[in-house]
Design a protein around this nucleic acid. Structure first.
Length: 146
DNA sequence: CACGGAAGAG
DNA sequence: CTCTTCCGTG
């Protein structure tokens, strides 16, 4: 019950992101955190959706890094290190870079959702598995075994 | 800035 | 495994 996070032009179903309130569970993941900031309008001066669907720009890299550092208890976090973590997402197909545009990345939503919330998603859709309305292409390979 | 190898933490 | 830290390269 977190109201419809309306990050402006983009909105996702609740199951599209992690209920960070997992009691002592595993740590929050960076892309969950990014999505979280993107949902809140009060951070639009720091990070916001811009351009194509799923594309966002980090308007204030230092601030996003600072916020991430606080969340992970890493006081020395900075954009250089945060962006390295973001780069690891390229191979995982969670994100990719919008080349030419500074501080701009793009989510591969169809992939992110399918890979991370397969069953959860199915349930939310009422039993029928289908491609989400925003997802263009389906996956075509297994990422766990090359 | 952006990229990705390497080593290391938890 | 998911980053965090450090760093050479373009």
């Amino acid at each position: 019950t977190r109201g419809q996070g309306r990050g402006g032009r983009f909105a996702f179903p609740d199951w599209a992101y992690k209920p960070e309130s997992s009691p002592g569970s595993r740590q929050i993941q960076l892309w969950h955190f990014i999505l979280e900031l993107l949902q809140k309008e009060e951070y639009q001066g720091v990070i916001a959706w811009q351009g194509d669907y799923g594309e966002f720009v980090i308007k204030d890299p230092d601030e996003v890094a600072r916020l991430w550092g606080i969340r992970k208890c890493k006081p020395h976090m900075n954009y250089d290190k945060l962006s390295r973590a973001l780069r690891y997402y390229y191979n995982k197909r969670i994100l990719h870079k919008t080349k030419g545009k500074r501080f701009t990345y793009k989510f591969n939503f169809s992939k992110v959702v399918l890979v991370n919330y397969p069953f959860n998603a199915r349930q939310s859709w009422g039993g029928g598995f289908q491609t989400p309305f925003w997802g263009p292409s389906p996956p075509s390979h297994t990422q766990t075994s090359p």
